[in-house]
Nucleic acid binder design. Structure first.
Length: 444
DNA sequence: TCTGGGGTCCTAGGACCC
DNA sequence: TCTGGGGTCCTAGGACCC
């Protein structure tokens, strides 16, 4: 698509005159550099300053403001490798603060819900809107209004792409952000610009096409989204399965991926961390795993779920190939599905002891709770001895931690020094989620 | 010194059954 | 020695997403 046609596609929108009956309109709203934007909402003085947010453990870059991108800071860049650039360019750095981002995300979704009856919250910074009911309007103008309102109400800048399918809406969204001419909103519904949009989209940038498929397709001469849309169905089916074929249909404007208005019940719940300092003892590993299983158990309690099995995994530092390497994992089943942190902790500890080997420097451990099921429907075994006190204890722990912050109260098994805890040296304050200070309790 | 975390779905192959 | 056909369930691994 040349620049002139993008301009005319967005500034003079005749699209609604071309729309065929039965057409759907899906908008993808995507927050720009979401984590960095969320931090800047509360520090207006850095509004135009290069800003980045780091992953857990302050490991690598996971969000970059436009100014930071312009400096050449790559997504996923290890922090220690760009430290000198950061200093030189005076880049503002934050440790990730998911409590803040989750809260800001809710505000954005609440705003979007004012504009469309059906909203799918796709991720923390993206939502699909069903705008089919608004096809008689100028969708571009409508989405500009959405964009303006989100910015005004939440302080978060967004880009919006509109098309007949989710996969096309993703492409429209990407082009909307890439081309300043669009002003952040691009509508492909019923327009003749779809072909041009597909042509200027690399196949690896299509939603559902990852690195491996992009390489395989490239070797077979399919380098653009347009080429993929025109590929042979049977060949795609053979090479990429039904998922790949769905993507191809979506590129042709045939919707195969419905909006999911109610989030599907989650099937697993994972908590894992790299250690701030390597762990070399079984005791240290047990503590870390106890802490992770407590976190994961609290999460499933919040969702009213119980776990039927527990997977524990441990590994050494794969970035130090000169060190002896070892990683292992094991899944143990629980007699009776539970969300009790003590019961799950016992199983997890058994798992750790089964896979732990002496003589390694461990860098990471994690827990995955599996076979999740509604806690209300759990059926005990014949020899089951349910202990109602366990539930009461867990309930009390949740109440305290919800009010005063996570890990205000925790199990002794999680340890006290916790030398393995992750680094978060650049954490921003709890702008939106602080309820009150933890009171000092005096012994009497 | 320092390289994230949390998910989903599909497929192939093996075990087992009739 | 010859040696069917169909089905289910489970798991590991591979692919993808943000």
């Amino acid at each position: 698509m040349d620049r002139a046609s993008i301009r005319s596609a967005t500034t003079e929108d005749y699209s609604h005159t071309l729309v065929a009956p039965g057409t759907r309109a899906i908008a993808l709203v995507d927050c720009n550099a979401f984590y960095a934007s969320a931090e800047r909402v509360f520090q207006p003085s850095i509004a135009n300053h290069p800003t980045i947010v780091l992953s857990n453990n302050d490991g690598c870059v996971i969000a970059r403001s436009a100014e930071a991108k312009a400096l050449g800071i790559a997504m996923g860049a290890p922090f220690f490798k760009i430290k000198s650039l950061i200093r030189k360019e005076n880049v503002v750095v934050f440790s990730s603060n998911y409590a803040l981002y989750g809260d800001m995300s809710h505000r954005v979704v609440a705003t979007l819900s004012q504009f469309a009856p059906d909203v799918e919250v796709y991720s923390i910074d993206e939502a699909f809107l069903d705008l089919t009911g608004f096809l008689d309007r100028d969708l571009t103008a409508y989405c500009r209004e959405i964009k303006r309102t989100v910015q005004q109400w939440t302080g978060i800048p967004v880009g919006i792409g509109i098309a007949e399918t989710k996969t096309l809406a993703k492409i429209a969204n990407r082009l909307a952000k890439k081309s300043a001419k669009t002003g952040g909103v691009l509508n492909l519904v019923g327009t003749r610009y779809r072909t041009a949009a597909l042509e200027r989209t690399e196949v690896g940038d299509v939603w559902g096409i990852g690195r491996r498929y992009a390489a395989m397709l490239g070797l077979n001469g399919i380098k653009t989204a347009l080429a993929l849309a025109n590929a042979d169905d049977r060949w795609i089916r053979k090479k990429m399965g039904v998922v790949g074929l769905r993507t191809v249909f979506e590129l042709r404007g045939i919707a195969c991926i419905p909006l999911e208005l109610a989030p599907p019940a989650r099937q697993s719940c994972c908590c894992s961390r790299s250690f701030g300092n390597a762990v070399t003892t079984a005791g240290g590993l047990r503590e870390a795993v106890a802490s992770h299983v407590a976190t994961a158990a609290a999460k499933i309690r919040r969702s009213g779920l119980a776990a039927g099995s527990v997977n524990v995994f441990i590994s050494t530092n794969r970035f130090k190939p000169e060190d002896p390497q070892y990683s292992n994992a094991i899944t143990l089943t629980v007699d009776v599905a539970t969300h009790n942190g003590l019961a799950l902790g016992r199983v997890a500890r058994r798992a750790v002891d089964m896979i732990y080997r002496d003589g390694y420097a461990y860098k990471k451990a994690g827990v995955i709770l599996l076979d999740l099921q509604p806690a209300a429907g759990v059926i005990g075994t014949l020899f089951d001895d349910p202990d109602p006190r366990g539930d009461a204890v867990m309930g009390a722990i949740d109440t305290i931690n919800n009010r005063y912050g996570r890990s205000t109260i925790r199990l002794a098994a999680e340890g006290f020094g916790q030398p393995w805890q992750m680094r978060r040296t650049k954490l921003s304050p709890r702008y939106t989620t602080r309820i009150s200070e933890v009171p000092v309790v005096k012994a009497s």
